[in-house]
Design a protein around this nucleic acid. Structure first.
Lengths: 203, 203
DNA sequence: CAGAAATTTTACCATTTGGTAAATCCACGA
DNA sequence: TCGTGGATTTACCAAATGGTAAAATTTCTG
């Protein structure tokens, strides 16, 4: 097990290479649809070599999901209870949309895992996401109570924000088929979502 | 091949049983994650028996996707260019949400397929969905031009409707974890989405 | 009921896949 | 430069999986 002490330079590099390849493969094919051979090929390493760095397919997947969780929650963590309510939420929508554009593989990895019932992630949802979710819901409820936002169910509001932003990564193929592809998709999406949530929340 | 002439009663029954079991398994585990043995067990038949009714795993999957396409487009087809714009769109949102509640397996089957890049569905997106999408976008554009709706990009509007409604099936595990489960989820969702899109679209 | 046709089971098979053991290679500090 | 521990490859394996052939059984029809 190379992870008992401090990792060498070569270990750092190969672990990163493997995780990057695995992210590609897992996000495209889901956990069971991904194979170690695919990951190995994409990483430019042999399969046994990969198993020298990770104890098995599942450990690679779990490692990716753990790392993802931090990145994923970050934009919501940054939502500041002391800021201007409408600005804070609209900025959050933009951060989330930026993440969808810049990290579509991560979005699809997450979507895949949730779709299959979160078999390797249930605890992280409960222990990592739920407390943050409850905290931010309370913040939004406070904003509504103070008359700074139009009345809204904060839980369904957050669901709507997640759904509308992640849609552009998770359903990318459909979006591209219907719009004809192109990078300007996200400009249109940004404008649309800003309007959508501004109109909903303006008191 | 039992599908050359008119199917017998026993064929009708078994094909239905198999497709129902396959929908369960494919929607939970994705195409590659599903196994014929699982489908066979769930259907109460033997694996070779299943292959007597379908020529292979892929044929079962494709059959499900084809059947799904009709069901899936139906709510949008019903949107009437001659009706009241706001009513028509809000009614469409409700129909879509009802479908998400009543057919969550179908929603997840579709999501799985799109997530993986629609490898067995690309043509149906292009030939089935796109024409309808373009047609309804034109209708909405007409409504906006006539001043019946607030200015909106019809394409992103439809994306938002799809994303927010299907979210409750595709991310069911997450929604249940965060809300504590319960059937009243959809009541809250219905109220929230009605408000969301009403505020967006009211001129 | 007899025989044909449809249906189901039994017994397989080839390939893929996650994983392992052991031999080999290689970088690097003494 | 030489030896040692980390890194990599080669050669496997057992289980799972999609699929098939053919025998056995059930169902339908005259």
């Amino acid at each position: 097990m190379p992870d008992t002490k401090k990792p060498s330079r070569i270990q750092m590099r190969n672990r990163r290479v493997i995780l990057d390849a695995a992210l590609d493969v897992f996000s495209r094919h889901g956990y069971r649809g991904a194979t170690l051979d695919q990951i190995a090929t994409e990483a430019g390493l042999s399969k046994p070599n990969i198993l020298y760095y990770f104890n098995g397919k599942e450990e690679i997947h779990v490692t990716l999901l753990s790392q993802l969780m931090e990145t994923w929650l970050d934009p919501l963590v940054e939502m500041d209870a002391g800021g201007d309510p409408l600005d804070e939420i609209l900025a959050y929508v933009q951060r989330k949309l930026d993440m969808t554009r810049d990290l579509p593989r991560e979005s699809r990895l997450f979507a895949n895992e949730i779709l299959q019932g979160a078999p390797r992630m249930g605890s992280q949802l409960h222990d990592g996401l739920k407390p943050l979710f409850d905290e931010k819901c309370a913040v939004i409820t406070g904003w509504v109570a103070a008359g700074k936002l139009a009345p809204v169910d904060p839980r369904h509001l957050l669901f709507s924000i997640w759904a509308t932003t992640q849609h552009y990564a998770d359903f990318e193929v459909q979006v591209d088929t219907l719009l004809g592809g192109g990078a300007e998709v996200f400009d249109g999406a940004a404008a649309h979502l800003e309007t959508l949530f501004r109109k909903l929340l303006t008191p």
